[in-house]
Design a protein around this nucleic acid. Structure first.
Length: 575
RNA sequence: CGGGGUGUGGCGCAGCCUGGUAGCGCACUUGGUUUGGGACCAAGGUGUCGGAGGUUCAAAUCCUCUCACCCCGACCA
């Protein structure tokens, strides 16, 4: 590919639209351009990266026996209503009407469509297991698209769906997918960690996420993992051991009393004013869970975990009450809610840690008042559950030998054991060997292709530009001719370009009439794994200068050996 | 959707407070000199100042509405 004839619009300055380093580099390097919020155009280099990643993923999927298909982006709303997700997913599901005013959606994922397909075509246990996948555009109307490809509204995803006759079959299918994911990311040159995650709106009972660990702000998800036993989980999901640390509750229980706390609403304000530690205070957070109002009690120094809370309430999602509803429910402004004397219609769910507390502080359900020396016997608890977020430093919930450590990661893939959520609601059943009709057992498995590409940039870059892992680099070699007015250099560069191409090496040839500094800066920015420089110095010595993008210095390779040398290096790196 | 901010040549920005007919850097075009880490000289082209309405002799600048985009929060591959 000759640079003078392709389309790689590099930028000297950072684009104003980008915050994240990987986003800036992809725009500056001429990989992507934004069309509108969360929607991007993939330029020639990006297209090649996408092909590379897709091809690796495709090969690993095919190896498992999964079959590639393509389902439409546009789908009738009907199928989504049957599974209930038309309502569950909410505004993130892009809805539209066609000219006949039929309601349609743009697929954010394809469980409904693939299940509908399989329902019509598969009837016997003899046809199972079946795993169908596609690599295709998804659309999610994100509340706030950001970080370029990291959270676009339109993005490329590989999604696979497995259908099995029983749970044992699902376990086998799931394991195959997990292994394929590990292999695929590994082949991309990306180290990932697999963590347990919540199933969220996807439904199902068991899920994992594949995270690329980064130590930049690009890591959106927080994961907790155990250095000892390898346990890892998304913060949303991470288990806590209910009883941690020594008890301090041998104090004698006192009778609670009301204290004035004028305008002290936050934990910080109340603890400072009353001079008690935050862990002696119980936060009462008011939530809406379906039709019910729930008061969630957790220790003042803990964070609520809404996913765990919604699981405890058996609803897909909980939502914090707005200020008016809080006032309505507690007869007090926000900041003074408490469990004592709360209306009977409100469900009180307490975190497990609450049970250990004695003589604590709660809101009084009256403006500018709190209750001190409150004890468990002073109010009702409808349910006790683990609803606080786990924290780094807590003991590993599995091996209990090491404290959990916190890292940040980018989620590039996930796997779900769905069970029968979709097959049951859509009637995807089969006849077993005894002639009984049963719902198929499903799994679904996603890899964000475009997100993986950006995650790689977030992981592999320096202050000059991208440094692609060779297997997913758009091309392998960046050939730079130092001076296009020097016939000897041009002849040598042209000749080498031809030789490299004939040897099957993907090469980007910078044949532009630019100064060397411009070419080097662009090469570093674009980030191909090797750069070969042709200038008069090397030519005179019969050597090419070959520089690995990640190495500080170039190597000098005899001209006669160069093609074989680079070919071997590339082969080794993309193996 | 709540809070904050920005829209001025292709890109990055100044000008706006204190109205007076649009500017800088990069990029681009032409000619010349240069050529191992983002060159230099000369000449040149490029804007209905996001849109609509209003105030005014006069609006990029003031007012109202509107649209788009960005950042912080809740959601996600």
């Amino acid at each position: 590919m000759r640079m003078s004839q392709t389309f790689i619009p590099t930028l000297r300055e950072d684009p104003a639209e980008a915050e994240l380093i990987s986003h800036k580099l992809l725009v500056r390097g001429g990989y992507i351009r934004k069309l509108t919020a969360g929607v991007y155009i993939y330029l020639p280099l990006m297209q090649r990266v996408i092909h590379k990643i897709s091809q690796i993923v495709r090969e690993e999927m095919d190896r498992t026996g999964a079959l590639e298909i393509t389902m439409p982006v546009l789908a009738p709303a009907e199928v989504w209503e049957k599974t209930g997700r038309y309502f569950d997913i909410g505004p993130e599901l892009m809805r539209l009407e066609d000219r006949h005013r039929r309601r349609m959606v743009l697929g954010p994922t394809h469980e409904e469509i693939v299940t509908d397909l399989v329902r019509g075509e598969v009837r016997s246990y003899r046809d199972l297991p079946l795993n169908l996948y596609q690599i295709q555009v998804k659309f999610r109307d994100e509340i706030r698209p950001r970080f370029g490809l990291m959270r676009g509204r339109e993005f490329l995803m590989k999604d696979a769906y497995s259908f099995d006759a029983d749970e044992a079959g699902l376990d086998v299918s799931y394991k195959k997918m997990v292994d394929a994911y590990v292999a695929a990311f590994d082949r991309c040159g990306l180290e990932t960690v697999m963590v347990e995650s919540d199933t969220g709106a996807m439904g199902g009972k068991f899920a994992h996420e594949f995270m690329v660990i980064v130590n930049t702000e690009g890591g959106e998800a927080t994961i907790l993992s155990c250095p000892e036993c390898g346990y890892g989980a998304n913060l949303e999901r991470a288990e806590s051991i209910a009883k941690a640390g020594p008890k301090e509750n041998h104090e004698e229980k006192r009778k609670f009393r009301i204290v004035e706390t004028p305008d002290k609403k936050t934990i910080e304000e109340v603890t400072a004013f009353l001079e008690v530690p935050a862990r002696k205070l119980v936060k009462t957070l008011m939530y809406k869970a379906g039709e019910k109002v729930v008061a969630a009690l957790i220790r003042g120094d803990r964070q609520i975990n809404e996913v765990k809370l919604s699981n405890a309430c058996s609803v897909p999602m909980v939502e914090m009450l707005d200020a008016d509803s809080v006032a309505n429910a507690t007869n007090a402004p926000v900041g003074f809610a408490g469990p004592v004397g709360l209306k009977s219609g409100i469900t009180i769910i307490a975190d497990e840690e609450i049970a250990e507390l004695v003589n604590f502080v709660v809101g009084a359900n009256a403006a500018d008042k709190h209750l001190v020396d409150v004890n468990l016997s002073d109010f009702r608890i409808d349910k006790t559950a683990l609803i606080r977020s786990a924290e780094a430093g807590e003991w590993c919930p599995r091996c209990r030998r090491e404290p959990l450590v916190e890292r940040r990661g980018i989620e590039v893939g996930n796997t779900f054991k769905l069970g029968t959520k979709y097959s049951a609601s859509l009637g995807a059943t089969y006849l077993d060997a005894e002639g009984n009709s049963k719902p198929m057992i499903m799994g679904s498995y996603g890899i964000g292709i475009t997100r993986t590409a950006q995650a790689a940039v977030e992981r592999f870059h320096d202050d000059r530009g991208i440094a692609w892992p060779a297997p997913i680099a758009p091309l392998h070699v960046h050939l730079v001719s130092v001076n296009v007015k020097d016939a000897a250099i041009v002849n040598a560069a042209n000749a080498l370009y031809d030789q490299l191409q004939q040897a099957g090496i993907e090469v980007l040839y910078d044949d532009r009439d630019e100064r060397p500094g411009v070419k080097f800066a662009d090469a570093d920015l674009i980030g191909l794994p090797w750069r070969i420089t042709i200038g008069s110095k090397g030519l005179a010595a019969g050597q090419y200068e070959i520089k690995r993008r990640t190495a500080p210095e170039a190597e000098l390779v005899p001209m006669t050996d160069a093609v074989g040398w680079i070919k071997a290096k590339v082969a080794e790196a993309i193996r």
